[in-house]
């Protein structure tokens, strides 16, 4: 059944390739005609020396990479900083009509208490970027999708707002936009009638930056490539281990937690 998705995707890639070759031809001829590029423009690929930028995004997201996060719940961190950074990055919390239970939250702080032992803790919960994501399976149009590098996100061009993905998500990670929005952030288009969720700050990752919540967490959240044994996150996971929320569902989320 997965092959159907792949076929569809393949068809899309093929059409995209045809398009881009046509365009490359056009751009090539412009370049040959001697159009100069204005000085002072820096290519983003060379702009940042972080390990993230080693990945050439001209090629697109690669299935060799699996982006993931490790949340250390044992660290004393104000997780609201992560929520704040997320809201700021994506321009959330700008609804004017919606009730509180209708407003979008990409990331939330969940307080967990064990009634038996009395032990309690807080942890941030966002889209867990599952390997076998139920939201991707149930989406009728393929709007809910997983990039090759494991990031799960919504293609709003295709989303028809059926909200089946919200029914299917065991982490309650998705929100539906209940009203007309304006003043969106330019990197996070969002609008009425579509479902949305944490996209791991895909725009930042593709530009060599870490997700906003990771940056705001004082290193309580580690971001990196789970597939790369040399990455910090992989080493930490190997040494100290990490748990996934609802691991019993075997969805293999990309977000791990330490101390739950």
């Amino acid at each position: 059944m997965t092959s159907n998705i792949n076929n569809e995707k393949q068809a899309e890639i093929t059409s995209a390739e045809t398009d881009s070759s046509r365009r490359n031809f056009v751009f090539g001829s412009i370049a040959a005609a001697g159009v100069t590029i204005a000085p002072g423009v820096m290519l983003y690929q060379t702009a940042n020396a972080r390990s993230l930028s080693d990945f050439s995004l001209k090629e697109g997201a690669s299935s060799k990479v699996r982006w993931g996060m490790l949340v250390d719940t044992t660290k004393q961190v104000d997780w609201n900083k992560c929520v704040e950074a997320c809201n700021k990055e994506h321009g959330l919390n700008n609804e004017t009509h919606s009730r509180d239970d209708q407003k979008t939250q990409y990331i939330r702080v969940v307080d967990v208490k064990n009634k038996g032992t009395g032990h309690s803790m807080s942890l941030p919960v966002m889209c867990q970027h599952c390997e076998s994501a139920p939201c991707v399976d149930v989406c009728p149009t393929g709007a809910s999708m997983k990039r090759d590098d494991g990031i799960v996100l919504v293609d709003r061009h295709r989303c028809i707002g059926c909200r089946y993905c919200m029914m299917a998500c065991p982490y309650k990670a998705r929100s539906f936009v209940h009203e007309v929005l304006s003043d969106q952030k330019e990197n996070t288009p969002r609008g009425k009638g579509c479902v949305e969720s944490c996209n791991m700050c895909v725009n930042r990752i593709d530009n060599g930056l870490e997700p906003a919540c990771v940056e705001a967490s004082n290193e309580a959240i580690i971001f990196g490539d789970l597939n790369d044994p040399e990455s910090k996150i992989a080493k930490l996971l190997k040494e100290f281990g990490g748990k996934q929320i609802r691991a019993d569902l075997k969805l293999n989320p990309g977000v791990y937690y330490k101390g739950i």
Binding site: T2, N4, D137, V138, C159, I160, C162, Y164, C194
Partner: peptide, 17 residues
């Protein structure tokens, strides 16, 4: 949420769904 996009539902399919 987007009934205007009915055409999307009738042309783009995810056969796992």
């Amino acid at each position: 949420g987007r009934p205007d996009r009915l055409i999307v539902a009738m042309t783009q399919f995810n056969f796992v769904s």
